[in-house]
């Protein structure tokens, strides 16, 4: 079950999208989210579709993998689509089914909103699939740097985030281990009445907390012994570089935005 989830998962590959500057990717996604709201007819949605498909091809992520991973979300999209069909009463009736009338407007709106939702999900997933979480953190830290002037703890937040990211796989593994150890002692995590299942969380959570605190303590000691004393006077190893590639993709997005603006009805 967990294996198939692709949210927040990074799939390494050698592609143009993978190589982009994370700042560019973050900005691209942000602007894309704004731009997509300009689309309101078949042509403009078509253009957005071409752009999205283009990004997917460039990213070299297998479409099948995307499809499998986003299956749960697609259900939600289908649900939205149905809601619109049933409750929007605009334009001509194109289908009559007893008390159920399907209007042209409903069909159109349902289709458009579902598409918009699909594109949003696809592009944001592409961001996390092609960018290591740490690059996203770096990109965000850089983009948010101006806010340091107002005493926002950008460095601390970024460090916290990168350490959390670093420890996610470790904690997942740990959770799995403790679950198995307790299952071997007769805890049933998967079946039985709800009350019992809620109770079975305790033998999982307590050890997990205990070990996380221990880890945190040891990590703090290790960081201190390696000379960590806050963000001041610290240099950064990771340098981001903005290339022609990034300019090109940003330009493509601008072109898309302009086209959408001109072609929308």
């Amino acid at each position: 079950m967990m294996d198939k989830m692709i949210f927040g998962r990074y799939v390494p590959a050698d592609s143009a999208i993978h190589k982009m500057d994370p700042r560019a990717k973050l900005m691209l996604v942000f602007l894309f989210v704004c731009t997509i709201f300009l689309a309101n007819n078949v042509v403009t949605y078509g253009l957005v579709a071409i752009f999205t498909i283009g990004l997917i091809i460039l990213s070299k992520i297998p479409p099948r993998f995307l499809y499998n991973g986003l299956k749960p979300v697609f259900l939600l999209i289908v649900f939205t689509f149905l809601l619109h069909i049933l409750f929007t009463k605009e334009g001509e009736v194109i289908f009559e089914f007893g008390i159920l009338n399907i209007y042209e407007g409903g069909l159109k709106q349902g289709a458009f909103i579902s598409l918009r939702f699909t594109f949003l999900i696809l592009v944001t997933s592409l961001l996390t699939l092609t960018t290591t979480p740490i690059s996203i953190t770096d990109g965000m830290e850089e983009l948010l740097n101006p806010f340091k002037k107002w005493k926002l703890p950008i460095h601390e937040l970024a460090l916290m985030m990168s350490i959390s990211l670093r420890f996610i796989p470790t904690l997942m593994e740990e959770t799995d281990k403790i679950m198995k150890a307790q299952a071997a002692r007769g805890v049933d995590f998967t079946s039985g009445p709800l009350k019992d299942r809620v109770k079975s969380i305790v033998p999982l959570l307590v050890p997990l907390f205990v070990s996380s605190f221990k880890r945190a303590e040891e990590l703090a000691t290790a960081m201190e012994s390696r000379g960590y004393r806050g963000g001041e006077g610290r240099t950064k190893y990771r340098q981001l570089s903005w290339n022609t590639r990034d300019n090109l993709l940003m330009a493509a997005l601008v072109v898309l935005a302009v086209l959408l603006f001109l072609l929308r009805s």
């Binding site: 740990e174 403790i178 150890a181 071997a184 002692r185 050890p207």
Partner: peptide, 13 residues
């Protein structure tokens, strides 16, 4: 079939 896992002290709660 009982299992004693590696570092079993991690299962105490």
């Amino acid at each position: 079939v009982g299992i004693v896992f590696q570092f079993p002290e991690h299962q105490l709660f």
